[in-house]
């Protein structure tokens, strides 16, 4: 493997889980579609790797590519896809309340899916624990506006997950 491939593998290994989680959020837990989107994201990372100039952190850069790849993937939701979704949600918890957690995750996916595409991206990044300033850089929205939006979406989401 050449040096580009070695760097690429390192980037892939370090970033795959977060890219995949973001894609799962976008596809309402559709594992197959999320894998396709994650693959698409890393293909673009490879194609643009030489143009990456540390202006933003590598992680921010990859999140941008991932969010944009998911945004560009606009498709009609088919009935059979709806059945396929949320089919592979599991939590890494061996205790008795694992099922409760899975139920809550299913509900969380459903609630995220009710949001607009931009709000979806914002809250998925927030769920990943990114600083709001970084979210604002990824989304191209002013920091203040992001803060307000996150506050609003958090309330909506918490309410929706608990069916209030």
């Amino acid at each position: 493997m050449g040096s580009k491939e070695i760097t690429y593998q390192k980037i892939y290994e370090e970033n795959y889980p977060k890219v995949m989680r973001l894609c799962m959020g976008y596809t309402v837990g559709n594992d197959a579609l999320a894998k396709d989107l994650a693959q698409e994201t890393f293909i673009k990372v490879w194609q643009n790797l030489e143009g990456f100039r540390n202006e933003s952190g590598l992680s921010t850069w990859i999140y941008r590519i991932c969010v944009n790849t998911c945004l560009a993937e606009i498709r009609r939701e088919r009935k059979k896809d709806r059945n396929l979704q949320i089919d592979s949600l599991q939590v890494s918890d061996a205790s008795d309340n694992a099922t409760d957690k899975e139920d809550m995750l299913v509900q969380l996916y459903k609630c995220i899916n009710k949001l607009s595409s931009t709000n979806k991206a914002i809250i998925l990044l927030e769920l990943e624990g990114l600083p709001q300033l970084e979210i604002s850089e990824i989304m191209g929205i002013k920091h203040e506006a992001v803060r307000t939006r996150i506050h609003r979406i958090k309330q909506q989401l918490t309410k929706c997950v608990h069916n209030e």
């Binding site: 889980p17 989680r21 799962m24 599991q90 939590v91 890494s92 995750l105 927030e126 769920l127 624990g129």
Partner: peptide
């Protein structure tokens, strides 16, 4: 919710 989100099954 954030905690549950980040503890989803191992995606590696």
């Amino acid at each position: 919710l954030q905690n549950k989100w980040q503890n989803q099954s191992e995606i590696s």
